[in-house]
């Protein structure tokens, strides 16, 4: 039972990061109808920017802020300089461009920083705090939960309580109508990419220290899990991304804990396949609204 409790908390901690990363995918899907396969590479690039600042200043928090700002800027550049010029009549061209971007970003990062794993520090201890004899969460896990929760609340407030959020949602759902109503749809799209990229950068900052370290390919497997989370929840649904992220996090933790970590990539793919076969729109898809 103790093991189950530990794995549950561990899974929720992993799931929180996956939820943030899945949310980044959902934000771009809603804004541009693109599955951003470059999300992982963009997030790693932002994390490297943070690493550079931390190395130069010795401050984790300055590096943290630099990575988030870097994420925002990378999102703006990718949308304005690349994605805006892609032929949107075929989804395949967007996928190919995104995959091409992955190769370019990872190659450039490899050339600049090398292809070795770099150490990524944490601002808080990763030693689990125990309740009784059961190790539950570390201070770092609590930081992860807090950071993800803050982002979720911030995005929820932005989208439901502000005029910018209303403009962003309208632009995503009905771009032509939004333009007729005076909304700068292009600007909203750029903002969507910037926010999504910053959220992806946050997820990278949170997850990389718990893995092998910083590396151009550090987010490859995380991307697969987060993509599965986004599909499980429904690519259209931010709450779905959160539920999907936590679900995938728990499954990864249980499978890894009970069956071994070698099996976890397969478990993620089986889950992805099952959802695509049974409910391709995801658990929280808004198909009804879209057909109206």
């Amino acid at each position: 039972m103790d093991r189950f409790v530990f794995l549950t908390f561990d899974g929720l901690s992993k799931g929180a990061v996956l939820a943030a990363f899945a949310l980044a995918l959902v934000l771009i899907w809603r804004a541009a109808r693109i599955v951003n396969f470059a999300q992982g590479a963009m997030a790693v690039a932002a994390a490297y920017a943070g690493y550079s600042v931390t190395s130069a200043t010795g401050s984790y928090w300055l590096g943290f802020a630099a990575a988030l700002v870097g994420g925002l800027l990378i999102g703006v550049v990718v949308e304005r300089a690349v994605m805006r010029f892609v032929d949107h009549s075929s989804p395949l061209s967007e996928v190919i461009v995104a995959l091409g971007l992955v190769l370019v970003v990872q190659a450039v990062l490899g050339m600049v920083y090398g292809n070795e794993f770099l150490p990524a520090g944490t601002p808080f201890s990763r030693n689990a705090l125990s309740v009784g004899d059961v190790p539950l969460l570390s201070r770092y896990d609590l930081f992860v939960f807090g950071a993800v929760l803050l982002v979720l609340l911030g995005l929820a407030l932005l989208f439901t309580r502000t005029s910018v959020g209303l403009r962003m949602r309208a632009s995503a759902f009905a771009p032509e109508v939004s333009r007729l109503l005076g909304v700068n749809v292009g600007g909203m799209l750029t903002l969507g990419w910037a926010l999504a990229s910053a959220v992806g950068a946050l997820a990278a900052l949170l997850v990389i220290p718990t893995e092998l370290g910083l590396h151009p390919h550090a987010m490859d497997l995380v991307f697969v899990s987060a993509f599965t989370a986004a599909v499980v929840g429904g690519l259209d649904s931010p709450p779905g991304a959160v539920v999907g992220g936590l679900t995938v996090g728990l499954i990864l933790s249980y499978v890894s804990g009970y069956l071994g970590s070698d099996v976890t990539p397969m478990a993620v793919l089986v889950l992805l396949l099952a959802v695509l076969l049974v409910r391709p729109g995801g658990l929280f898809s808004s198909t009804v609204a879209r057909q109206a």
Partner: peptide
């Protein structure tokens, strides 16, 4: 051209 996903109030405020 009603934005189906938004509420009546949100559509009008838009």
């Amino acid at each position: 051209g009603v934005v189906a996903e938004l509420t009546v109030d949100e559509n009008l405020r838009l």
